[in-house]
Computed example of a mutant assay.
Amino acid sequence: MTGPVRRTRSEELLLARVSAAAGREHLGKRRATYGAAAHTAHAKPVWARGIRGLPAFIRYGRLPATKGRDDARLDLYAQGMTIAVKGRILVVRYDTTSVFRTSPPHPRDPARVGPSCTVTDVTGERVVLSGGPDHDDAAPWHSEIQRGVIRSQLPRSLDALDRGKRLAFGDIWLTSEQIGYGEVRAWWPQVRHLRIREEALELDIDGRWHGPGPGVSGIPNLFVLSALVEHLGPDGAR
């Protein structure tokens, strides 16, 4: 019978650094660990296999070294996540982060592969996270980040609207009474649906689609905005 694989000294030190960083930001209980690829937004994009290395990570506690690629370790917690990449530990809190949708992969561009998104850490630095070419947009870490942000930010957004605040999601603004962008605006009882068409947002107002609106790659936390539209529109709970 084979016992558990022992971590190396460097792996123990990395885990200690990750745990310490999560503790400083009060992220709560660790829920899962994944492999991915990451680079800061100001760096030259270098895409990696990412999640393809996850079986090796589970078995050996580390991702396989890959020349010229920035493999990252994602530790997801109750209130956020840590990103360990190139010797750095970046911390993301679900209640303050902005998540931007990255353009989907192009079949003729091998440098753009797998599910990806951009998140901001607690200092405001943007980090691009990507999966591998063998995985679809349902990457587990992507779905968990989305659920965590909605869980943390939707109640706070609704409370702000109740207090008369105006919220902005990029070029889109909304109040407890209206939503708008550019020259388009509507009262909530008029808004039926929100959709993405050709990477731009459109609104169905009284049965008529208005668009194209802002590009989705420039809208922070688009899934929170979608949840607000669903909640505040005529078919919502309000």
Rank of each mutant, 00 (worst) to 15 (best):
R197V: 08
G131W: 01
R147A: 15
V92L: 07
G28D: 13
R112I: 13
Q178T: 15
G213N: 01
T123Y: 00
S130K: 03
V128G: 05
L158V: 08
P133M: 02
A111I: 07
A138I: 10
P234I: 15
H135R: 14
G131F: 04
L129I: 14
W141G: 05
V127R: 00
W47S: 15
V191Q: 00
T175C: 04
Y94R: 07
G131N: 06
K67A: 14
T102S: 12
S157I: 08
I205M: 04
L228I: 09
V184T: 10
E11Q: 15
V122I: 13
L158P: 06
P55A: 14
G80N: 04
I58W: 13
S157P: 06
G182A: 06
V128C: 12
W209N: 00
A111H: 11
H106W: 10
P45A: 05
D171Q: 13
R31I: 14
G23A: 15
G80I: 06
G53A: 07
L63C: 11
R59P: 06
Q79I: 09
G148A: 13
V85F: 10
I150H: 06
G164N: 00
I89E: 13
P110E: 04
P55Y: 11
P45L: 06
D235N: 14
A36S: 13
G233E: 02
I145L: 15
D159P: 00
G35K: 02
Q153M: 13
W187V: 12
H106A: 10
V122E: 02
G23T: 09
R238F: 08
L54C: 08
L154I: 13
I196H: 04
L174A: 01
F57E: 12
A21S: 14
S130D: 09
W187R: 06
T8K: 04
V92T: 08
S19Q: 11
R88V: 13
H231C: 10
G53N: 09
V128Q: 07
R7C: 07
V113Y: 00
L154D: 03
G170A: 05
I83L: 10
D204S: 11
G213H: 00
D136A: 14
T175P: 02
L13H: 13
